[in-house]
């Protein structure tokens, strides 16, 4: 009888492990082992005050599964690059000489994973989602480059803060490779309401209509 109850206890203990996909569990362990949480917020909410923003060392990852494309994550985790030329919080990387600001050294993510580990971590990160984000909000359509460029560069001057590959601002993430990096539904959501994702974001919120949002995101996926 005692033996039977031991077997039963073992099987009960095994149930959660069998219930969760192995890759996710391993990815989560790797995130812990690599101490990703020391720099990234792995659980929400995002910083709600400027003081908290200034303590941010790396982008929030608690909605990574909504934000990123998995294939990009797998590559990035093996070979990190600088996505934000001014650093995660540009204010923390400013060097001032006289009255002129420049950007000091911006470090890449220190973690560099093997292909296998990167795939597992990416699998896990893709499970971290913001349930309120509407999937399918982005409608793939005709890419109207000239029209999109007029909105992005002439009307909104997005290149004042973002680099589009031809020399642009440094305080916000580069848009070079945005299509590979970002989930278009997230781009749509972020542009529509950046404050939803980051209450203290320094990107202005515009009131774009639906057609303009689709025009912009259709262009950005080509970047």
């Amino acid at each position: 009888m005692r033996k039977l109850s031991r077997i039963m206890a073992f099987m009960i203990a095994l149930v959660p492990a069998l219930g969760a996909p192995v890759a996710f569990a391993d990815g989560k362990s790797l995130v812990a082992a690599n101490k990703c949480g020391d720099c990234h917020k792995m659980a929400g909410p995002s910083a709600a005050t400027i003081a908290e923003v200034l303590k941010r060392k790396a982008p929030d990852l608690f909605y990574a599964g909504s934000k990123f494309n998995k294939e990009w994550l797998v590559g990035y985790l093996q070979k990190p690059t600088v996505v934000r030329p001014g650093g995660v919080v540009y204010l923390n990387n400013i060097k001032t000489a006289g009255d002129t600001d420049t950007v000091g050294s911006v470090d890449k993510c220190a973690s560099k994973l093997s292909a296998g580990d990167a795939a597992q971590v990416a699998d896990y990160l893709m499970t971290l989602k913001d349930a309120s984000m509407k999937a399918g909000a982005f409608k793939k359509g005709e890419i109207k480059s000239a029209q999109a460029r007029r909105v992005l560069f002439k009307e909104q001057a997005c290149d004042a803060c973002h680099d589009f590959g031809k020399g642009g601002g440094l305080s916000c993430p580069t848009m070079v490779g945005a299509g590979a990096r970002l989930n278009p539904d997230w781009m749509y959501s972020f542009i529509k309401d950046p404050v939803h994702w980051d209450p203290k974001v320094w990107m202005a919120k515009r009131d774009f209509d639906e057609a303009t949002l689709q025009l912009i995101v259709n262009f950005l996926v080509t970047q």
Binding site: Y90, D99, D101, T102, C161, G169, S171
Partner: peptide, 14 residues
């Protein structure tokens, strides 16, 4: 500060 600079003189990083 991103555009107007930390000294406020218009010499920010952007």
């Amino acid at each position: 500060v991103q555009c107007h600079g930390s000294a406020g003189t218009g010499k920010g990083i952007n």
